[in-house]
Simulated scan of single mutants.
Amino acid sequence: MFKILSRTFTQHMKEPVRVVVTGGSGQIAYSLLFRIASGSLLGEHQPVILQIYDLPHMQSALKGVVMEISDGAFPLVHEIIASDTPSTVYADADYAFLVGAKPRGPGMERGDLLKQNGEIFVKVGQDLDKFAKKTVKVLAVGNPVNTNALIAMSNAPSIPKENFTAMTRLDHNRALCQLATYLNTEVHNIEKLVIWGNHSPTMFPDLTYTTLHNQKIKTKIDHIWYEKEFIPTVQQRGTAIIAARKASSAASAASAAVDHVRDWALGSNGQWVSMAVPSDLYNGEYGIPIGLIFSYPIVCANGSYQLVKDLKIDEFQHNKLRITVNELLKEKEAVVDLIRK
Rank of each mutant, 00 (worst) to 15 (best):
M1F: 08
K14C: 05
E15M: 14
P16M: 06
T22G: 07
G23I: 01
G24R: 01
S25W: 04
S25R: 01
Q27R: 09
A29F: 10
L32H: 02
F34I: 05
R35Y: 07
A37I: 02
S38C: 07
L41C: 08
L41Q: 00
H45C: 07
P47N: 07
I49P: 05
P56G: 03
M58L: 11
Q59E: 13
Q59P: 09
G64E: 15
E68Y: 12
S70R: 15
S70M: 13
S70I: 05
G72V: 11
G72H: 09
A73F: 04
A73I: 11
A73H: 14
V77Y: 00
I81D: 02
A82H: 04
P86Q: 07
D92F: 03
F97E: 09
L98N: 03
V99Y: 02
V99D: 04
A101N: 04
A101P: 01
P103V: 14
G111N: 12
F121S: 04
V122S: 02
V124H: 11
V124P: 02
G125S: 05
D129F: 05
A132S: 05
K134V: 14
V136K: 02
V141L: 11
A152C: 06
S158A: 14
I159L: 10
T165C: 12
T165E: 13
A166G: 04
T168Y: 03
A175E: 03
A175K: 09
L176V: 09
Q178F: 08
T181N: 15
Y182G: 07
Y182M: 13
E186F: 13
V187K: 11
H188E: 15
N189E: 14
N189D: 12
L193T: 06
V194R: 00
V194Q: 00
G197F: 00
N198V: 06
H199A: 13
S200F: 14
M203L: 12
F204D: 00
L207K: 05
T210I: 15
H213M: 15
N214D: 09
Q215K: 08
I217S: 04
T219E: 12
K220N: 10
K220F: 04
H223C: 09
H223L: 07
E227G: 07
I231S: 11
V234Q: 01
I241H: 10
A243Q: 10
K246L: 15
S248T: 08
S248G: 13
S249V: 10
A250D: 10
S252T: 10
A257Q: 12
D259P: 12
H260V: 11
R262W: 09
L266K: 14
S268D: 13
W272T: 05
V273K: 01
M275N: 10
A276V: 00
A276M: 02
V277C: 01
S279Q: 00
D280E: 12
D280M: 02
L281M: 04
Y282Q: 10
E285F: 01
G287A: 03
G287D: 05
I288E: 01
S295C: 05
S295Q: 02
P297T: 05
C300T: 01
N302D: 08
N302T: 08
G303L: 14
S304E: 04
Y305E: 04
Y305C: 01
Y305K: 01
Q306P: 14
K309P: 02
K312E: 07
K312F: 13
I313Y: 10
Q317K: 09
L321F: 12
R322K: 04
I323W: 08
T324I: 07
E331R: 08
E333S: 14
E333R: 06
V335K: 01
K341S: 12
K341F: 14
